[in-house]
């Protein structure tokens, strides 16, 4: 084989290219997003270390304290519970619900989208109709029905959000799949005789799932907001468990006089959303490096 011409040396500007890649892998949005999100998670985990107050204990004598009151840095709510403690312990509830309520729709939706996009034909048609029905079905009616069926609590929130949320992932992955399966690398995998499940999971999934991962970041925030909405209807996280959504809802009654009661948990939701959006940006940049 000595006659074979040697190829051009890879990356004549190798140093420059490597520099660019390194900077793409750990890019500023990704780092800042991860740091910010890490801080929020750390606050939730270390709640008992950061405050000695009990988030549930009521003290009506000390109700409606403004932020900065002695012993209550963020004040107290209408029942006299410490707002800081409720914020910290609320983060535990919300992150848990937010993340868990996104994981199963993500997994189920992506898988169904993968199958629909790959096989097409009647399978795709059937899945498409189911998706249409779910989208057309009012979310809140579904939740109310479920709460009656399962009983109130976080479980029914998970189930309800999963039943509705998978649709978005299914659509995203299916769309990506329609493009990816026509790419020549998918053809090449088929031409080399690999079994279908292997082509789907090993070759196509990693290429189509990126958009779904990015969407899941904003979906976590959307889920938090959905919980707030449910709280309004009394279907959210049952009291007295601390949760940002309930806090926003409670503070909303006093918005004109005690603006900070809704604003502080609202800010927490915004910061969490920002951290997740930064992570999503970072993932995009990393993938496009």
């Amino acid at each position: 084989m000595s006659a074979v011409t040697t190829a051009d040396p890879p990356a004549s500007a190798a140093a420059g290219a490597r520099r660019r890649r390194r900077r793409g892998r750990w890019n500023p949005p990704l780092i800042s997003g991860l740091v910010l999100f890490g801080l929020i998670v750390a606050c939730a985990l270390c709640a008992p270390l950061l405050t000695s107050q009990d988030p549930i204990k009521q003290n009506l004598a000390q109700a409606f304290l403004a932020p900065g009151a002695p012993g209550h840095p963020l004040g107290t709510d209408s029942f006299g519970r410490d707002v800081l403690a409720r914020m910290l312990y609320g983060a535990r509830t919300d992150l848990q619900v937010g993340v868990l309520a996104v994981v199963s729709p993500f997994l189920i939706g992506s898988l169904i989208g993968l199958v629909a996009g790959w096989f097409g034909g009647w399978i795709d048609a059937v899945i498409g109709r189911v998706v249409d029905v779910v989208i057309a079905f009012p979310f809140l009616v579904l939740v109310i029905a479920l709460v009656f069926a399962i009983g109130p609590g976080t479980t029914s929130i998970y189930v309800a959000i999963t039943l509705v949320g998978w649709v978005a992932y299914c659509r995203i992955v299916r769309g990506q799949m329609l493009v990816a399966k026509e790419q020549e690398y998918a053809m090449a995998a088929r031409a080399s005789g690999l079994p279908t499940w292997r082509i789907l999971l090993r070759h196509l999934l990693p290429n189509v799932v990126l958009q779904a991962v990015i969407f899941s970041m904003s979906d976590i925030v959307l889920t938090l907001l959905a919980i707030v909405t449910l709280g309004f209807l009394g279907l959210g996280v049952p009291p007295p468990t601390p949760d940002w959504g309930t806090m926003i809802q409670e503070g909303q009654q006093f918005i004109l006089t005690k603006w900070y009661m809704s604003t502080i948990p609202g800010l927490a939701v915004v910061i969490t959303g920002l951290a997740l959006a930064l992570i999503a940006d970072g993932i995009v940049e990393r993938a496009n490096q």
């Binding site: 020549e184 690398y185 070759h203 990693p206 290429n207």
Partner: peptide, 14 residues
């Protein structure tokens, strides 16, 4: 076996 046309789309980027 086949060698494909487009050197950009014929290899799995990941």
């Amino acid at each position: 076996q086949m060698v494909f046309q487009d050197p950009y789309s014929s290899l799995n980027p990941r």
